[in-house]
């Protein structure tokens, strides 16, 4: 089963040009949002992508979802390189990977009713003949999807503003499920929600994963959430991967100094434990990804840094 590879990302790079000038725009540098990321996701697995703002986790997700053009590298989905597909082939492939977004407000078009939002992917593919569903079947499917994510099918006639944040996120999840994808890329799906709603959504996604045998790529900044949801965690820092670990061993035995610092910074809701914890307080801020750099990206803030860290970038072991 271990070889059952669904997604294989190889040396992915996404560099944005930095341009200056009023009339004629010249490129003055590159912002290396994602700089050589490789990892793989097996079928049925939930893999977490964590890191702080600007580490490139969302850009990585958008590149995998083909919403952001990579500068180089390969994204193999079921063995096919997504970049090499024709528009028609890509359109067919898209059915198999769907997105869940962070902001339950901006992710739903305010002028479209909930039922139509969920049915939209089905209608798009039905119109082009890639799936054969009539309007009645689409409606029935929408209703059953709504029911599955915990919404009353009668809510289909309501506009997004009539729902609470948690309910909107459920609509977003139902939309992602509509095409029966194999992979769901969830970009910070619970970070905009209230604490009491977060666990509802996490549990819902867990149930759905089990029920449909889905694979999840889960992007978040909250390590505790990722540890709960995922079986494997990828820690990113400044466009590169710092560490990949099984979530069961990560907390007990983090290897990378950045992972250690990140874990020690996560507050634990347990006062006596919290008082006894040794916290690794990192010096300074994350450097700008626009700066040219050599060696290990973490070296300026690392308390273990030695000479070699400055000259050569460590490879993933």
């Amino acid at each position: 089963m271990k070889d059952d590879l669904l997604l294989d990302v190889r040396d992915l790079k996404v560099h944005f040009p930095i341009e200056k000038g009023i009339l004629v725009r010249r490129r003055v540098g590159w912002l290396k949002a994602v700089d050589g990321v490789s990892f793989s996701v097996n079928r049925g697995e939930a893999v977490g992508l964590v890191g702080e703002s600007g580490c490139g986790k969302s850009t990585t997700a958008m590149a995998i979802a083909q919403l952001q053009k990579p500068s180089s590298g390969q994204i193999l989905f079921e063995g096919k390189d997504l970049a090499s597909l024709s528009p028609k082939e890509l359109y067919e492939a898209r059915k198999d990977f769907q997105l869940v977004f962070q902001d339950p407000y901006s992710s739903l078009n305010p002028r479209i009713m909930a039922g139509d939002i969920i049915a939209e992917p089905l209608r798009i593919y039905a119109r082009r003949g890639s799936i054969t569903l009539g309007e009645a079947e689409i409606r029935a499917k929408t209703a059953s999807l709504m029911e599955r994510v915990g919404l009353l099918p009668s809510f289909a006639q309501r506009y997004p503003h009539e729902f609470s944040g948690g309910q909107r996120q459920r609509i977003g999840i139902a939309r992602a499920l509509a095409l029966e994808p194999k992979l769901i890329i969830a970009d910070e799906p619970v970070s905009a929600l209230d604490v009491s709603i977060q666990s509802q959504i996490l549990n819902l996604m867990k149930d759905i994963q089990d029920e449909f045998g889905l694979t999840f790529l889960f992007i978040a900044h909250n390590l505790a959430v990722v540890e709960y949801f995922c079986s494997r965690i990828i820690v990113m820092y400044l466009g590169t991967i710092a560490e990949i670990a099984d979530s069961s061993v990560m907390y007990e035995n983090p290897l990378h100094p950045y992972t250690k610092a990140l874990l020690s910074a996560v507050p634990i809701p347990d006062p006596p434990k919290e008082r006894l914890r040794k916290r690794i307080i990192l010096k300074g801020d994350v450097p700008s990804p626009a700066k040219e750099r050599t060696g290990c990206p973490f070296r300026e803030r690392c308390s273990y840094a030695f000479e070699r860290c400055a000259t050569s970038r460590p490879t993933l072991i």
């Binding site: 604490v195 009491s196 977060q198 666990s199 509802q200 996490l202 549990n203 867990k206 390590l223 505790a224 959430v225 540890e227 709960y228 949801f229 069961s248 907390y251 874990l263 996560v266 634990i268 809701p269 347990d270 434990k273």
Partner: peptide, 16 residues
């Protein structure tokens, strides 16, 4: 209902 980083076993979260 809050996931804890130090929770060894992955017990299902309660949700209100």
């Amino acid at each position: 209902s809050i996931p804890r980083i130090d929770a060894g076993s992955r017990k299902r979260l309660y949700s209100i």
